[in-house]
Design a binder for these strands. Structure first.
Length: 540
DNA sequence: ATTGCTAAAGGG
């Protein structure tokens, strides 16, 4: 095809892919399959009729705080909950301890976990600790022989994010430097990134409003994330679209977290369908999206995934190098959501990875707060005749006796009524929401993916790039990118054709890649010259 | 008004 990955045939950069693999990999770069679609659909600002609450993410996830006595840290944190935009009525009050936040008047107030984090995780050593004879494991950050996977993404550290897996599509070495050299293992935020965050926030605010929820345990925290997911799925089903939906999946047995920018029932490019069927895997069962008359794709409503990228100029040009990480990103989202829709996700594996006990009851405070947002949490109204049903089953293990004090007004709903008290009990509700919104399993998840380029100035739509899901390309990419995470090989720098990336890289100064590359080329040239000399000698 | 801190992604 037009451009290969520019893998040098002499393997100068350490690649040793088969021609077929090489071809597949190159598709990641070159397959800008669709011409940019018109921007006619750019004002589909969804009126947030808003029966639903989508609760935004939580400051939890500090499962790594495990080795620190949690009481010493006074593990009292909070997360953000998002509610409908126009919320005429308020059900219930904020529970005691909760700030007087109301939808529309959003209070963003994160707990200060920095000390807890610093002492346990990211920093090589606690600052107050004497430098004398520091633990050898803590000091040798430069020549640490452990794999990046073990060093940076194993318990009690946070799991993989989709970003972890896509960053290598830009430059593996840059990401490795980010992980190992940056203070918190993350990239320095640029002004462009901050603006991009704001554009994303503005978009999300069109469908959600923030409410704050207090978190008293890590189980609370993950419970909130599940509630968020449920509410996001319902918003998708009820309004046709939602934003910032969290998805989970496993790659090589590793948990990976992702957040899908946009989900909608609207096909990003209806004319693309025929081409799409050719891109799906030929073997295996014929996809329902195939063009055979018997399996009309139009009969199955599908939700389509979008990722928003903001640009600094209205006439932003898109190079394949820029698109490649976004493709991997959307491929991963597509796969994860498909697997969740097909009920193939191992939720208890997720709990295990986070060190969560699926049977630990949510905190009283958390239940009260969620209960004020979701009536369904309680089964008060669920009995057919409206009678109060004693929680006989619930009290069998004694867990129902959480409130022993007489309940006051805000605790009118006793835990006896609570239907979803634990992560385990919450799971069926999530599975139901997945079935309701994606009733055809993986076939409910569209295989057409879109990158939406928006102008950072005002968020207006610049361009949309549409491309099909490509499982083989994703598998191939994951296979190669996991190699360096496992330390089966060194992380690679950019190809020489993409050296422009180094211009904006904060590690360019002491990056060894270029000199190493020069050295390799030098030796390669020497080899070539040597063999040529031999040849000459033989001939002459 | 904007920044840092949890999340992930944020841009190039």
């Amino acid at each position: 095809m037009a451009t290969s990955l520019s893998l040098d045939s002499e393997d100068e950069f350490g690649y040793d892919l088969s021609p077929e693999d090489e071809n597949l990999l190159s598709r990641l770069i070159t397959d800008v399959a669709a011409a940019p679609t018109s921007s006619s659909s750019q004002n589909h600002v969804v009126a947030p009729t808003a029966s639903d609450l989508g609760i935004d993410t939580v400051a939890e996830e500090e499962s790594r705080l495990n080795d620190i006595p949690t009481d010493a840290l006074s593990y009292q944190s909070s997360g953000l909950a998002k509610g409908p935009l126009r919320l005429g009525r308020h059900r219930g009050q904020n529970p005691p301890g909760a700030p007087p936040s109301s939808p529309g008047d959003v209070v963003i107030c994160y707990p200060d976990l920095s000390k807890a984090l610093a002492s346990n995780d990211r920093l090589p050593s606690p600052p107050q600790q004497a430098p004398e004879r520091a633990a050898p494991e803590e000091t040798q950050t430069a020549n640490d022989t452990r794999s990046p996977l073990v060093r940076f993404r194993s318990f009690p550290r946070k799991p993989f994010g989709v970003t972890d897996l896509t960053s290598g599509a830009w430059c593996e070495l840059q990401y490795f430097y980010t992980l190992s050299r940056s203070p918190n293992g993350r990239k320095t935020r640029t002004a462009a990134m901050k603006q991009g965050t704001k554009v994303h926030q503005d978009l999300e605010d069109q469908v959600h409003t923030t409410v704050r929820v207090n978190i008293a345990s890590k189980e609370d925290g993950f419970g909130l994330r599940i509630w968020n997911l449920i509410q996001g799925l319902r918003a998708l089903r009820d309004t046709g679209m939602t934003r910032e939906l969290e998805v989970w999946g496993f790659v090589d047995g590793n948990l990976v977290i992702g957040v899908i920018d946009g989900l909608s029932f609207e096909n990003p490019d209806p004319n693309f369908v025929e081409q799409l069927s050719q891109a799906t895997e030929p073997q295996g069962q014929p996809s329902i999206t195939a063009y055979f008359p018997s399996n009309k794709p139009a009969n199955v409503p599908q939700i389509y995934l979008t990722d928003v990228k903001t640009r600094g100029s209205m006439n932003a040009l898109n190079s394949p190098a820029l698109l490649r990480p976004a493709k991997v990103q959307l491929f991963l989202y597509q796969r994860f959501l498909s697997e969740m829709a097909a009920d193939k996700l191992d939720y208890f594996g997720i709990f295990r990875r986070y060190g969560l006990d699926p049977d630990v009851p949510f905190s009283d405070s958390f239940i009260a707060q969620i209960g004020s947002l979701h009536d369904e949490l309680f089964d008060v109204d669920m009995s057919p005749d409206g009678d109060y049903i004693p929680p006989s089953s619930a009290s069998t293990n004694g867990e129902a006796r959480v409130f022993e004090e007489p309940s006051n007004q805000t605790r009118a709903s006793t835990p006896d009524h609570v239907k979803y008290r634990t992560l385990r009990e919450l799971l069926p509700l999530l599975k139901t929401a997945l079935r309701d919104t994606l009733p055809h399993g993986a076939d409910s998840v569209g295989r057409l993916l879109a990158v939406e380029y928006r102008y950072r100035g005002d968020g207006s739509l610049i361009d949309v790039i549409v491309f099909p899901m490509d499982d083989r390309a994703l598998d191939l990419y994951l296979g190669t990118t996991m190699e360096w995470w496992r330390a089966d090989r060194e992380p690679r720098g950019v190809q020489i054709e993409e050296a422009f990336k180094c211009r904006t890289c904060e590690f360019a100064g002491d990056c060894t890649w270029r000199s190493a590359m020069d050295e390799e080329r030098l030796q390669s040239t020497r080899r070539r010259l040597a063999s040529r000399r031999k040849k000459h000698a033989a001939n002459g």
